[in-house]
Design a binder for these strands. Sequence first.
DNA 1: GGCGGTAAGTATATAATGTATACAAATGAA
DNA 2: TTCATTTGTATACATTATATACTTACCGCC
Lengths: 208, 208
Amino acid sequence: MPRPKTIDRTAILQAALDIADTGGVPALSMQAVATRLAVTPMALYRHVANKADLLDGIVELLMAEIMADAPAPDPDGGRDAWLDALIRTAGRARAVASRHPAAFTLLLSRPAATTAAREVRAHIHGLLRQAGVGGEHVERLERIVTTTVLGMAAGQASDRFAHHAPGVLDEDVRALARFVTAGIEPFRSSEERVSPAGVSRAGRRASR
Amino acid sequence: MPRPKTIDRTAILQAALDIADTGGVPALSMQAVATRLAVTPMALYRHVANKADLLDGIVELLMAEIMADAPAPDPDGGRDAWLDALIRTAGRARAVASRHPAAFTLLLSRPAATTAAREVRAHIHGLLRQAGVGGEHVERLERIVTTTVLGMAAGQASDRFAHHAPGVLDEDVRALARFVTAGIEPFRSSEERVSPAGVSRAGRRASR
DNA sequence: GGCGGTAAGTATATAATGTATACAAATGAA
DNA sequence: TTCATTTGTATACATTATATACTTACCGCC
């Protein structure tokens, strides 16, 4: 039909992410993205509503990158499958944060209302349920755990800790996992602790 | 000596905070601050290095507001004085966040290197030590706890949860305290253990 | 008293930003 | 060919942050 497109939304977001990574968030301007794509700034507006939309797109990209290769919920993968999954998710978040330190701060400053963000939340959601967290606490704990994991990843990616040996960061992840594991303990139902598939059932109504 | 000053740094920061509160962070421009103070934009630069410095100043203000009226570390104020202090700190953070929802996001996006921020960190630091957390874990846990508390406060202040009943938010603070209390449990040294009420599994009785 | 030194606020200017509006080019379908 | 449609361009404009050079108002001092 029409003129062939030379750029698309994902190319724009990728270029924007690159710019933020190299020059920091303040260097991320429409002009910069456009020139990197060898295109006029106004061309971006065919694929992106405005700059806020572009920033949201970057958040989306990062969230998707965190969830990439995340193993599907494995109900009968062992007693502590949820713990392993949580540790791995935290590790992926840290990896993404250290790959995109500057852009990662956007995750914390913008409302997480995009689909990929919802996916992350649902992921944690599932892990908590698998861990036997009571239904009325899942939502609250999900918020706590998510902000803790993402916040820690962001902190680790900041310059102060960048010079640490990789082992130290691994230790951080392990400590975080221990913290979260112990933290949700009071919210777990005693029976049906790890039980697969039936977790979200009405069995637990104990408190509140 | 010289001409009498009509504005000073704190007046600027206060005006900036007001603007961010009413119009959101994007509305916070040097011009806006200047006109609110009935002054030329360039007058601000006598008291503030640049806009980044102004934003850092706002963070400073918020941090100071969180720490305002914080009780001094009370070593022999009871077994679980640290828990009370932690809960109160979280409550103050939430209060500040709900008073300045827009500006509060700056806390998470900017590096917390100012003196007031350090004060908050030192505060949490002290609480953890008082709780008997081993010295090699204090720093790490402080980061975890601080980001969790501040992140939760920011989340509660975001629009999504603003329509909740106040009781729900109080419940959130209590859940957060339970989470953190249980979370640091594995890091506490056994002898100085303070054993606050309801830390482990027994704590799951009806909250409130 | 007048005099300067000096800090505070102003005037003016500039480059860069985000974005609206109107246009040109390039394609497949008619 | 002509048309409709989509993509990128040209131009314009209000706003932003800030540099440089003024002017104003006060103090202590002669």
